[in-house]
């Protein structure tokens, strides 16, 4: 078996195949990084909404909580199919990649908003009270006092989530997005050894996620202490 794999290597690592794999890796990375960045932004907004106290904003708070609680409990694959079919109504020509990206964003928004909320809650309540009494607005409290202290609690699980999601984007192959896993299927269908193909795919996933883990670690150390 080893011999067959070795003999296939020159035929497998050709320039067109490498470009094919590279593009797929790019798509996988884009799906998780862009999806999680948008998700983080929206999740941050949801967490901020949940910090408000104004009685008029109660419906918004309920909506934010409902969103977080619902979409953290639905399997990613189900959301993918849901978006795939639901999107026909609003944008019948949406690309498969766009559909997958929207799905990633929906899920990551829910998870990351919960991570941000936990970060906000980790800042002692008394500091918030002190700021309230000094007439800080809700937004000033988040921006000047809570967020700077919450980063160190938000970042590790936030990055862990994104790195984990790089793997979950493999499910996007189910709706036909040509990302890494789908590329593996195509290549192995073309007759390349499945072991060689998926071994390469495995390596590609590692190459994608490891630097992100390191980046997360670096940011964690940079932001962990309040001193700038």
């Amino acid at each position: 078996m080893i011999e067959t794999i070795l003999s296939e290597i020159p035929r497998f690592f050709t320039w067109p195949n490498l470009v094919f794999l590279g593009e797929a890796a790019g798509r996988t990375l884009m799906l998780s990084v862009v999806g999680c960045l948008i998700g983080f932004t929206l999740g941050f907004v949801l967490a901020c909404i949940r910090q408000t106290r104004n009685p008029w904003l109660a419906p918004l708070r309920v909506a934010a909580i409902a969103y977080t609680e619902i979409f953290r409990r639905i399997p990613f694959l189900v959301i993918l199919f849901l978006v795939l079919f639901a999107i026909q109504v609003v944008a019948p020509n949406a690309s498969l990649f766009a559909i997958a990206l929207v799905s990633v964003t929906i899920v990551s928004t829910a998870f990351l908003s919960e991570i941000v909320r936990a970060g906000f809650d980790s800042v002692p309540r008394q500091q918030v009270e002190a700021a309230e009494v000094m007439n800080f607005s809700r937004w000033q409290i988040i921006h000047m006092i809570v967020a700077p202290q919450a980063w160190k609690v938000i970042l590790p699980p936030g990055f862990a989530f994104m790195v984990m999601f790089i793997k979950d984007t493999a499910l996007a192959s189910q709706v036909g997005v040509v990302e890494l896993t789908f590329t593996g299927k195509i290549l192995s269908n073309r007759g390349f050894s499945a072991t060689l193909t998926f071994g390469t795919i495995l390596l590609a996933y590692f190459i994608l996620s490891y630097p992100l883990t390191r980046l997360g670690r670096y940011l964690e150390i940079r932001l962990a202490s309040p001193r700038h």
Binding site: P124, Q126, Q127, E129, A130, V133, P148
Partner: peptide, 11 residues
Amino acid sequence: IVFQQYNLFQN
């Protein structure tokens, strides 16, 4: 107001 636990902004 000054609080029992100081409540300084740690950052």
